[in-house]
Nucleic acid binder design. Structure first.
Lengths: 221, 221
DNA sequence: TACCGGCCTCAACCGCTGGTCGAGGGTTGA
DNA sequence: TCAACCCTCGACCAGCGGTTGAGGCCGGTA
């Protein structure tokens, strides 16, 4: 298991990222975003970690439009054990010292310091109404632990608000909650109820599965 | 009270955004991001709402690195989002600054060249056994359309293979299929059964919701 | 042994985004 | 009437994110 060659890596990534090429992967190395090992003769050898890194880069680029320079900083922050700070949407910068790490796929890893928001902070960070939040809580989509909320609650609330603008209301979203619960249940059947090394890995896998399934079932263009 | 001239607008914005210029404001109009009124003689007149819009654009650009194209879509969504939303967030007609402006479009968009694989190609690309694939097909996780498979099938098969190494077998994954089906069903209730502009946007949103929910329910580290 | 596909480097090139600049000319108000 | 302000339009530009091609080295295989 000495890692994969660049061609193999290309195959693996192309399923998920249509526009990846060999030259792009090489370019990303030249920019310092990945640092694959080399064989004696100079061939690149990508470890599983290198692959994750590439996935991270490509996802951040595609889904968040981040410039490589910024992605590189995030990777550096992650390497140093921090969580990449990312600005939320245009909102008064009054409270809330730091917004949560963006919902980058595969970022289920060691979270470092988990965000803890009061209800007011959450309302402001997500820019949603108190009514909407109450409704989301009523359907179990957002849950406070103690009297505070985690960073994911921001994402849930923001997305729910956007979906509401399409006419999709919180009560239509209950199925998402049960699906997520079942998914986590499945993971815990493997890892047990405590968080382990594998927890994040498995979550990344199941979410990837979910995403691919949804995409595959969407009407074709 | 009839609005401000471009020079005045420049003064107001420069306090907050160091790099704004007159030519940039004009450029943003040319790109369709603002549409100030005009005087009889052709001078631009910016209303308060136009100013908010500019602030939104400049903030999104500076803090989220969003490309103008995407910001424009967000603005369009906000404009349209005022309509249905029973439980939607209180985005009043001209009070833009509070918005759920998170990155919207994931790569559920126009795929361009959709991958079409034969069964053998799929087996090779995903590096899985014919038995596993057959099992996945049996449970409806991978579906051939005609006699070929899409690129997502590679991801599904790869992930399923990895999950199998944790003891999670295809039959445990049926729930993912039904969840995905329901999710797509929900989207199609909004967009209709044909693929539209919104299809990809909605899919990106629901997948983001799913991901955030799973993460929020994972055991805390 | 020769061959061929895969991989290497390096430099030149490219298209798109996000503007800037200047010429030439009208408008406003003191 | 003059200065300050504003207009359009077309040319130009810098940086980002790669692509392309020339020239050459590996490594399996026939």
């Amino acid at each position: 298991m000495g890692g994969r060659g660049i061609g193999e890596v290309l195959q693996l990534l192309q399923a998920e990222f249509a526009d990846v090429t060999i030259s792009k992967i090489r370019f990303l190395e030249a920019e310092g975003l990945v640092t694959p090992a080399r064989t004696a003769s100079g061939y690149r050898k990508f470890s599983a970690a290198d692959l994750e890194r590439l996935r991270y880069v490509l996802t951040a680029q595609r889904d968040q439009y981040l410039p490589l320079k910024v992605i590189k900083e995030h990777l550096g922050a992650i390497d140093r054990g921090l969580r990449p700070a990312a600005a939320g949407p245009p909102v008064a910068p009054s409270s809330l010292p730091q917004t949560p790490g963006q919902p980058v796929a595969e970022d289920f890893g060691a979270a470092g310091t988990e965000l803890r928001l009061t209800r007011d902070e959450l309302l402001r960070a997500a820019a949603v109404s108190s009514e909407l939040l109450a409704e989301l809580e009523g359907h179990g989509l957002v849950v406070a632990s103690g009297n505070h909320y985690g960073g994911d609650a921001i994402v849930v609330a923001q997305v729910a608000a956007e979906l509401a603008s399409y006419g999709i209301e919180p009560r239509h979203l209950r199925a998402f909650r049960t699906a997520a619960d079942r998914e986590v249940g499945l993971i815990e059947q493997v890892t047990g109820p405590r968080r382990t090394e594998q927890t994040g890995e498995l979550a990344a896998l199941t979410v990837r599965l979910h995403t691919a399934l949804v995409r595959s079932r969407l009407p074709r263009p």
